[in-house]
Each structure stands twice: as C-alpha cells, then as structure tokens.
Write a protein that binds this DNA or RNA. Sequence first.
RNA 1: GCCGAGGUGGCGGAAUUGGUAGACGCGCGAGACUUAAAAUCUCGUUCACCUUGUGAGUGCGGGUUCGAUUCCCGCCCUCGGCACCA
Length: 800
Amino acid sequence: MQDYTSNEIEEKWQRYWAKEQLYNVDTSVADSNKYYNLVMFPYPSGDRLHIGHWYNYGGTDIHGRFKRLQGHTVLQPMGFDSFGLPAENYAIKTGTPPAESTMNNIDHMRKQLKSIGAMWDWTHEVVTSSPEYYKWTQWVFSKLYENELCYKKKAPVNWCPSCQTVLANEQVQDGKCERCDSEVTKKDLAQWFFKITDYADQLLDHSELDWPQKTVLMQKNWIGKSKGCNVDWKVDGSDLTLSTFTTTVDTVYGVTFVVISPEHPELMNLVTDEHKDSVAEYVNEAKKKSDIDRTAEGKEKTGVNTGAFVVHPLTGKKVPLWVADYVLMNYGTGVVMGVPAHDQRDMDFANQYGFEIVQSIADTNGETFVYDDVDKYNVKGKIIDSDDFTGMDILEGRLAITKKLEEMNAGEGTIQYKLRDWLVSRQRYWGAPIPVVYDPEGKAHLVPEEYLPWELPTDVDYNPEGVSPLATSKELFERTEKIFGAGWTPEVDTMDTFVCSSWYYLRYPSATEESAPFNIEKTNNWSPVDMYIGGPEHACMHLLYARFINMALHDLGYVKYKEPFKRLVHQGLITKDGAKMSKSKGNVVSPDEFVERFGSDVFRMYLMFMGPYTEGGDWSDRGITGIVRFRDKVWKLLNEDSEGNAESEVKLHQTIKKVTTDMENFHFNTAIAALMEYVNFVSQNGISKDDKLKLIVMLAPLAPHFAEESWQEVLGQEGSVFNAEWPEFDAAKTVESNVQIVIQVNGKLRGSINVARDSEQAQVVDMASNEGNVVKYLEDAEILKTIYVPNKLVNFVVKA
RNA sequence: GCCGAGGUGGCGGAAUUGGUAGACGCGCGAGACUUAAAAUCUCGUUCACCUUGUGAGUGCGGGUUCGAUUCCCGCCCUCGGCACCA
C-alpha cells in the first residue's frame, strides 16, 4: 500500500473532471430532475481567497455533489460580480482602467477557485462588467421603465464640497469625507428609482419559501408594514391642511401638539412671521446634519415653535404646531401628532418644551400606560375622556374613530411601510450605464434595444469635479448625438451594482462563452434556484432586490416563477480570535499553506467538521490532524482485504440513514462524525467490498478527490464516482436485536441490563429489580410505581 | 430600546414529540512497538470524594415531573439585525 499523496492525486482528478466535462450541463434541455445549486458570486478582488471563501464554496459543493449522487442533474455555476467601487478607487490612484484591473483579478481568482476542486460548470460563467452581461442589466432597466416601475425624482446624495464629488455611504466616515476629512453635506440630485414599494405586500409573503426564519423576519421588519389612520388637521387661519399618520388613533383625544418635519414642503408657508427666522435657522441646521448625526444624538430632542396652530378635527381645539428633526419626511406624512400621555417619545418632547399631558386611554386596571411597552395591535383597555368614544374597548374605539374621521372627510384608514423605493443611480464610473438619453428639451428617452449594450465609455476622467465621470467622456456625447440627433445628451449616472446582482441567477443558464443572447427559455428550464447559499448580511438588500426584480419580470411574462430562490441557507462566519477577518485588522488566515500541506479534501472536511455549517466558528488549526488521521485510516481500510458481518451491516444502514439526513440539513459536522464512527467500527469488525463502495460514495461529497482515487484506482470501478448512486438504507436493518435498558430508582441511574429488543415488560422489570446494584435500593423500600419505557428504561419510584 | 439566535468538559462540539449528558474529534495521561524519536495501535480522560461505588453537574434563581440540556416563570451574559418608523 502506498501512502496517500494529496497534491499529486488532487491535481490528477481535477484534470480528469475537466477533460470529461463531468459537471457541464446542457441547459437547453428541460430536465425534471434538474437541481440548480447556487452560491452568491464573489467580487473579484486581487487578494488570495480566504478561509471564508473556502467555507462558503466548500459547503455549496458538498451539497451539489450530494444532490448529484442522489440522481439530480446539478447546475452549479460560478461568476463574478465585477462592477463596483474598489476597482474605481484603484483607477483613481494608479490610472489603471477598471476594465483592465478587473479582468486581471478575475483571471487570478478563477485559477484559485479551480484549486478548490468544486464541480463548477465554467461554461456558464457570468461577468457582470462585460458588455454581454450588462446589455441585459440595461434590458431589465428598460423593461421596468416601460412598465412604470422606474421613475426619476430629486433625492439627496452625500456631497463633499472640497472634493466636489458624490460619496457612497461607505465613503463617509463619521460624517466626514473618507479622503479629505471635510464635512459631508447633502445635495439634491435628480436620480432614478425602481418602484420596489409596489411589491411591498408580495415581498412580505414568504409562504412558498423554505428560508431561515430569521431572514424572513428581518425582511418583514425591513419592509415594516403598519396599519393605521391618517388624521387631517386644518392649519388655523390658513387653507392648508396637514395630515398625520398614526397607528393608534385611539389616542387622538390626547393630542396636545403636532410636529412637522424640517423637510416638509409646506413648512415655510405656515410659519408665522414672528417665528420665520428661528425656524429657517433650525431647518438649515437640520440640513447640515447627516442621518447618522440626527440619530446619534440619541434621546435628546430638539425643536422650535412655528407659531402656527392646527385645529383638532374632533374637538375643534387649537393645538400648537412645532417643527422637530425627529420627524422624518420619508416615512408617513412628515407630520406627527403628539400624544405625550401614551407615547414615550412624545412624552420626552412634551417634558422638554412644556406641553400639556392629557390621558385618553387606560389599561384594564384603569391605569395609564405608554404604547412602547405593549403590543399596540393586541392591546386591552378602555378609551377615556373622548366624547362618544369614551368607554369603548381600545381596539373597537380605534375602528370607530377611524370611521368617524372618514365620515367627516377628515382622515382615513391607511397602511404605511418603512420600505422605500430603490435608488439605483450612482454618480460613479465603474457600473452599468443607465440606458437613457435626453432630448434637447431635457425629456428622458430609453436607449432602444437595438443599441444595447449601451457601452461604458473609456475616455473619462475617473475623478472629475462636480459631475459624474461619464460626463467627461467626449465619445459618449458624440455617440449620443450621432444616433439621436444634435442637442441630445446621455444620462451620465451608472447603476447600483445591486441591480447587476439582482438577476444574475437568470443569466447563468443562458450564459456561454460565445453567446450574448439572453435565452429566457433556458432560464425557465432551470428556474427557480433550488438551493441558494450565501451570507446572512444580504438578507435585506440583495435578497429583497432579487425577489423584486424576479417578481416584476414574472408579472411582465418573462420569468415562469414568481420567487427566485426556493430554499436558502446562510453559511456561518469564520472568525479569528473572535473577530471578523479583515485586512485592516491583519487577522486574515490564508488557506494556502493548509491546502499545500494536507490537501483540499482534508482542509474542506476540517472546515466542515468545526461545527454546524450555518453557525461558522472561530478558526484554529488545532484539530486538523484528526481529519488527516481519519483519511489515512479509510485509505488503509480500503487497501486491506476483509469481510463484513451481520453487525457491520446494521452499523452501515444506521450510518447511511444518519449521513443522508445530515447532508440534507447541512449538518456536515455530524455527518463526518457518523462516518468516523462507522470506519472505527468496521476497522475492528471487517467490511465487504460492496460496503466499501457505499462508504466511498458517502465520503465523495466531503472528499471528492480522495473518493475518486479510491473508487477508480483502489477499488477498480469504471468511470467517475460522481456517476454512482447514493446508497439507500433499509429501515428494518437499522435496528439492533439487543437493546440496553437503563434502570433508575427515583429517577437516578442505578444500573443497566441488556435484553432482546421488544422483550415482555414483566420480564424486563423483573430482571431490572434483580440487577446487582439496584437490589440494595429496593430492599427496605416500598415500590410506589414502576415506569417502563419499552426498549429504553425502567424507573422504580420508591419510598424509603 | 425592539426583534432574532445562543450560553454544555482543558478545547471544537454531540444529544431536545422530556428517558444513560458529554457522540465524534483535538489535547492530555498510561501502555505496546522502537536503540531512540516520529508515526501507528490499545486503554483511560466532566469534576469532587472515603473510588465494586457515592455526590454534584448543561449561564444564574425558581417551578412542573417518577425523571428536565430539553417544558414554564424571572434574571444575567454573548452574538447578529433594526433603531426617534409616528
């Protein structure tokens, strides 16, 4: 027997798999056995793959190989999410065009990815920054535009007055510009939005999805649906009416003030002359503050009087109107009614500025309470001091007040969401150009499909002053005039990279080396994604955007399935000394030396053995020798002649059962433990050649190269082990003929006996009461009760 | 503050329709083999004690039960997410 030499053997089989095109899938064929196994694609950085990549892709590959062995046709593609800021920053620093540095990084990363020895189908690779790909990102934009799911409006961006440039959120550190450290301000720019809010309710429905509960909850929370009521307030001595949104209109008789947001468009039209200066100053201050500053101040509330009053629609009383920056313009109506008696935030504000506190509801004990401490949709209690509504149950009163307001035409029941429309414009270079041009009047027009891809120009200043980089491209402006006519100008913003990644899973099936067409038939052959694996950090951005785009394309008749990702699994995070690995902390562990020393199989298996896949863990190489020993033990077992026995058959069927369910549930750690137990057992008891083959198949997803070598070279099988079948277990053969019965006295373990399975109760209890150590506890005691659990335990309840 | 997940030996972690806590692995100890070492193999390894056994023990304090890591009540801590959302 030769020693197992991992490097040489792994390289050999990687070449073999590539030569046999074992993992390539013909997506033009609809296959009822198809299994689309997808992992979130990486951003191509120039760094080496780190342990996190290996963990992520290792788990994905194990699952894909397991599904293949179970008889599925598995499509497991890989690609690159290659637009984005790092390449652009690199260009600003070095002048290297992003297209060039990105392609270098991709070549580098592709090589490393291949060394994992995973079953990627490289014939379906996608690169989001290639014109063949972004042509279709632009097509998606066009379809949304044509169907009124895309619009343009002014929205604030982070603006560095010193660099004269727009900053991404990540480029703002503590309200200051990352590069020059000057104070970042807000600037309004006209920008493109996708109407994701049209899909808020559909996105809230996760009933068809096999997703982690926590992800579903996070999305629900993010969308933030609230049922409530709008209440209209006439501004005293003016034609203006302000509307407030509330989820608890039952407290409307407790309103003692109303607060308006500094960004509210009507604000300056209703301020009294006397207060104009102080309000203008306050609004200016608020504009300067970033969102972070505004919230970072914590509990301390600020506000100023507008001098105006609004009229309570039900009591006719005048209520003071103040302006305060805790009221957000982008949620609700931008105006809030203040009920200090029953809302903590309103109470804080009232205490600070001396507003009256008027109680209007009480709990079942007649005590006052604040809504922060109770579930407002399930509250119990009565309405008090509220005209005709006094004495009603709170929930009943809430409906009655809403109805009354609706009858008076002074309000209506409504629903609010926290979810906002998706801003897709980026004032950056390295992204997909927005396929829009403007006529001489400034009206927007889509670039017709025949001109797609609407190519990203290369003659640009990567770091211009005051405008988007594309605005500096002569070629782009000339191209636009040439095609559309004199005076026409191009859109100079590019798309958020989340747009590129929101549909890439639809592209893989039709992506091939030579083809540009987006073949929707191939896509529909392989939709939806059966398994999607990636980090939990994408719960509210990428995963929500992708669902939205897929739903929209479904409604427009392109995509067959409404939901893109049937099942979702998040891999856990691998940390080092408890901290997330990052270059800046200098605690990044490279997999290379371990792969070099022990091989890709051992390294992968060790990562999976660390703990449950979805939990990750702290990296330490302390136990890796255990996996090496296990591999060598199996190697030795396979290379020796032996025969099995009846007991090893039971053990085999138990192991198949355990490993199969563990694999399905991503419990790779316990699957490996079960295989170790089995190997330990058969090393003592012997194993037949048939059982060796089954063992190899079970090991194959976890150690693909090792399994292939064993299958073909040691056991002399024809063809790849990945064309073999996953072993079946026979439930009848998983049970042992003898069982151990635990004997307890008053619930304390006092002994155990070995009996035949399904023995008579009376016989087992008799044997138990005569067991050596048990006897002394029963001697001078009265047996009150005997508990018998078949094939498990006997418990004597005694009185001493 | 709110929502979610978790807390088990020296270490990574097993085991929950309530039924032997600590599977599997690392580490450690003892032994075999060896001139020796490494490798390998065998045995042991929760803690304490008066060691054929007894007691305690799954973050802390209570409860239900013949029996609780598992169920209930009240706390503490760690991690992830959201956060003036009206």
